[in-house]
Nucleic acid binder design. Structure first.
Lengths: 349, 349
DNA sequence: ATGAAAGCGCTAACAA
DNA sequence: TTGTTAGCGCTTTCAT
């Protein structure tokens, strides 16, 4: 492997080991000619600083730990790219682990990160309100920042959109374009405090309009949406004309499910998602959705965390702005569909 | 922070530091009663082994470095999840970095990983045939395994499907169901040796059927497919009836683009992708595609790399099986469309 | 079965 | 400006 150490460089440059270290890390403290000699020697020997040694000595690793539920949902992948970019800019490294939504793994993977002595953590947990991991981190005074989660406890610093208001806006939009019977579709409800907040936003919007919020339709995650679950929204004396989904992946799946049932989207049913993954905009019909700035969330989390590591006072949680993407899966409600705009391009010329 | 070390535990358990280390790592070498005392002391003190210290001493980090182009394409996200699962099973950790397809970053991010003294690397490079990173790794005898890439040089161990044959199978399928004018759509061609291999597979299949392969249609990546590029496939005296796309993301984008142009998929144009991302199966119409076992590729890469770290001889590259997913975006060619199967569900009842 | 001690590669006092 | 030295937390001979 590579066994060339500071000492080897020192020997070759005919200076002490300490001088090499300084020449490489704080060249200002070393005579120019020496710096050059050292650099040359290092280059000749193909010297590669050993961060393990440095980290042990420095008692800091310049590495952040990241814990996310999954990367399959690109919302988290985007966030991670943001995290990575920001850390790289600040000359930090990052160790990523995913829990694949297994709440019981959150603690174990975090523990492993702590053994590696990451300087701080960025994580998305199932529920920020009651979380063994966060309790542990608090107890050990290990700095961390939550992404996507929002926490009732102010000391748990988060970077997110305002899920409740964002959801309210989305549903409010549906109402404003004439929908009155709107249902919310979620994955496993308990798995995500975001979904719960978004459900509250749904209720807020419904009530504000004098409508009756319905209980959420829970569909199993990561699988084609059972037509049964969807059919449930279509039956009864007050069938839904619009569905608000707790995330984009689910929304995409719901749209496909509806089409498969022989319905037309959006003429028969409007659908709105939440996340704003790029893919949604590429689809046809383009997914209407609430856009969260995932990359920014990641970058902002890094900045926040590093500020704290530098000793800044914790500061408040950060709420980034969301926006509505007016896609093609949601249109004005009409008892008898009038518009053929969306469908017509799919016609043969 | 946490400053409890082996020594602290030793003091509390009234044994030497060395005994604590042994009790924790090789309990067989220590009297049972002592092991218990040590464990208890460690638990009381909330001792958390410092891997930095261990790694420095052990001159091995039990950590693998991973370099991937992006996570936004779920094919890589899936692969990473496989990598993560396998490493965790073997009590290894992993450091991930992405290049976001910036070839010029491959070297820099890898260098950083090496400074962290990862024991080995798993990477997907733009082109395995000529790659400064790989040259460097070879030169330093740093163990690595490529995923997705296939290399002409046998010593560059890879884990992948047979891209050329897989592509040939896909195009062969199109031919077998009556298509004769088939074009291939790729992203930036130079960015990926996979795309080139797949193009060869396309040519193989065309020629084997006595058809004339056309040059690839290159469309800019990560953006809605320009209708201009697609229109190009529809013009001329021999307009395509089917498109083979170099990856699923592109295929999805192409399908949407066609729909937007007013064409029907698959009646007017069949589309086949490559990758087999889960999402494709959720869409409507479901994407026809070549399925690669991405998770397995990741897991297999870990196993291969760890075997090598254990001193096994390198062994040959691993070619995992692919399969065709018969989706709904590809159907038998007919001059005048006869089937309404796909479209009819989208009709109002 | 346990302890003493050396040292992994590096940084940072402290001296010179 | 440069050198000497003492560890950072851990594993591992080598003794006992």
């Amino acid at each position: 492997m590579d066994r060339v150490t500071l000492n080897d460089v020192a020997l070759r440059a005919r200076v002490s080991l300490a001088t090499v270290s300084r020449a490489l890390n704080q060249p200002a403290l070393v005579r120019d000619s020496t710096v050059r000699r050292v650099r040359e020697a290092a280059a000749d020997l193909n010297f590669r600083p050993n961060l393990v040694g440095r980290n042990l000595r420095a008692r800091t690793t310049r590495t952040l730990g990241v814990v996310l539920p999954t990367l399959t949902n690109t919302v988290f992948a985007d966030c991670f790219q943001g995290i990575e970019r920001a850390t790289r800019l600040q000359h930090y490294s990052v160790m990523l682990t995913t829990t694949e939504y297994r709440v019981e793994d959150e603690l174990a993977v975090t523990e492993e990160l702590l053994r590696h002595r990451v300087d701080g953590l960025i994580l998305t947990v199932a529920s920020a309100a009651e979380s063994p991991v966060l309790d542990m981190l608090d107890c050990e005074k290990m700095p961390y920042v939550l992404v996507y989660n929002q926490s009732p406890r102010p000391h748990r610093q988060t970077v997110s959109v305002d899920n409740r208001i964002a959801a309210r806006d989305a549903v409010g939009h549906l109402i404003s374009i004439g929908h009155r019977s709107i249902r919310m579709v979620t994955g496993d409800f308990r798995e995500s405090d975001r979904a719960q907040l978004r459900y509250r936003g749904y209720r807020d919007a419904m009530r504000a309009a004098g409508l009756v919020p319905q209980p959420p339709v829970e569909v199993p995650l990561h699988t084609a949406v059972a037509s049964g679950a969807l059919a449930q929204c279509l039956r009864g004396r007050d069938p839904a004309s619009a569905l608000f989904c707790s995330n984009d992946l689910l929304a995409i799946s719901v749209v496909s499910g509806l089409l498969r049932l022989g319905l037309h989207v959006p003429d028969d049913m409007s659908v709105v998602g939440f996340d704003g993954v790029d893919l949604g905009a590429l689809l046809y019909p383009a997914l209407a959705t609430v856009v969260q700035p995932s990359r920014d969330i990641g970058e902002s989390a890094v900045d926040t965390l590093l500020a704290r590591l530098r000793g800044d006072v914790p500061g408040r949680s950060i709420v980034l702005g969301h926006s509505l993407r007016i896609g093609e899966t949601a249109v004005r409600f009409a008892r008898r569909p009038t518009s053929q705009v969306i469908r017509s391009p799919n016609r043969r010329k």
